[in-house]
Design a protein around this nucleic acid. Sequence first.
DNA 1: TAGTGGTCTAGACCACATA
DNA 2: ATGTGGTCTAGACCACTAT
Lengths: 240, 240
Amino acid sequence: MSDDLVAAKPLYAQVRDQLTRRLVSGEWVPGMLIPSEHELARQLRVSQGTVRKALDAMTMDNLLVRRQGRGTFVSQPEDPKLLFQFFRLTADGKEAEFPLSQMLGNAEVPAPQEVAEPLGLAEGAPVVRIERVRLMAGAPVINEVLWLPAARFAGLAGLDGIPNNIYKLLSAKWGVTIARADEQLRATLADAQDAERLGCAVGHPLIAIQRIAYDLEDKAVELRQSRCLTDAVHYSVSLR
Amino acid sequence: MSDDLVAAKPLYAQVRDQLTRRLVSGEWVPGMLIPSEHELARQLRVSQGTVRKALDAMTMDNLLVRRQGRGTFVSQPEDPKLLFQFFRLTADGKEAEFPLSQMLGNAEVPAPQEVAEPLGLAEGAPVVRIERVRLMAGAPVINEVLWLPAARFAGLAGLDGIPNNIYKLLSAKWGVTIARADEQLRATLADAQDAERLGCAVGHPLIAIQRIAYDLEDKAVELRQSRCLTDAVHYSVSLR
DNA sequence: TAGTGGTCTAGACCACATA
DNA sequence: ATGTGGTCTAGACCACTAT
């Protein structure tokens, strides 16, 4: 690699970062076939093995998909293998199912302090607040609010027909890829709004989830607060 | 590699499995320095690069720890980096903290059907049932029951002084390594027993966790049912 | 100084997909 | 037949640790 005044990082990490920049910039878009290992090695003037190590790392991060004999492709959020990457609720005794959404609101508002802080915004900065109920097997299961920085997603507030899979929309319309998310769970009780929207009694136990989602550059992109009815559904985690 | 009548798997995967067998058999014990890459390559008659790939995979699975200049060591469950591998509760706004335990019972009983099935045992097979309350920052937070197959852990039932970290005990006394665990979470309400043990009101919201823990050979080793007070503590998950 | 793991290279061969 | 990723090898050099 020619550019990079200070090395610091090993070569394959520099290659990984360089290639990730092609994703961030939109030069590489979801579904696209990227150049072969040999071609990238020529472009970047490193060995094929070093390119391979970078591509393997990006594949581990679910940014790329490699197919023997065909080539290496940019991951798509709607890929069946990635659909459940950020959705951990499963109906008891059934196959994983992606929930439908019923929109209840989508407006630009000033960010309250508790929202501004995790998103790295100033209090009162404009954010898009999306409210919806999500259904599994026809029954309402999640009552949730999403907050996204309005400056970054121009035209999102008030947008008609927000699709079920919001991360796919962020990717398609603004080129933003959600790379990871942190969730914090607690038990809570249904309030009057939960009860009405989820069709349960006030005081029914719920799991409250607070999620912060990050993009490829590790900047916070979304704050999501979900309140989940777990009578016929569970939150599942694999620890390794 | 000489042995292995049918190849099927790539060489580095065969090396990984072979080396994992040394962990299972007890030839390699936690904390031990294992032979160098060159030495293993000589032993197994493969190249150093192939050994490296196997060791890297095992390091990713938290089975080994590599230290540049010193060598490769077998992981220890009490390693600070692994302590929280299977413990996801954190006190709000504090550093991660490993909970103390207060034992409430430890006896051999016949396995009820709901316990026998996930552990792969026959209904009524002898299991060790351990009951305890766990404390964080001095306050009770978890009311839990553990079930382990008695046949595999001779002498566990009725054992005095069961330590706080049970997985370390399983490793030290029976050579069993917990390699992964699946958890299912739901919201529930405190019953009279929860209320008494956790010092909360009956009907207080709790997170109920059911865990199944697996060993190196992917056999179910433990069923754990935890009921957690999340007033000052949260369950945290990283999704990538 | 010697030994270890970490990086990087170069090239051979295999397995798979496509034309 | 060609091009792709997947495996495997061999060897050079670097960075770190211990003696």
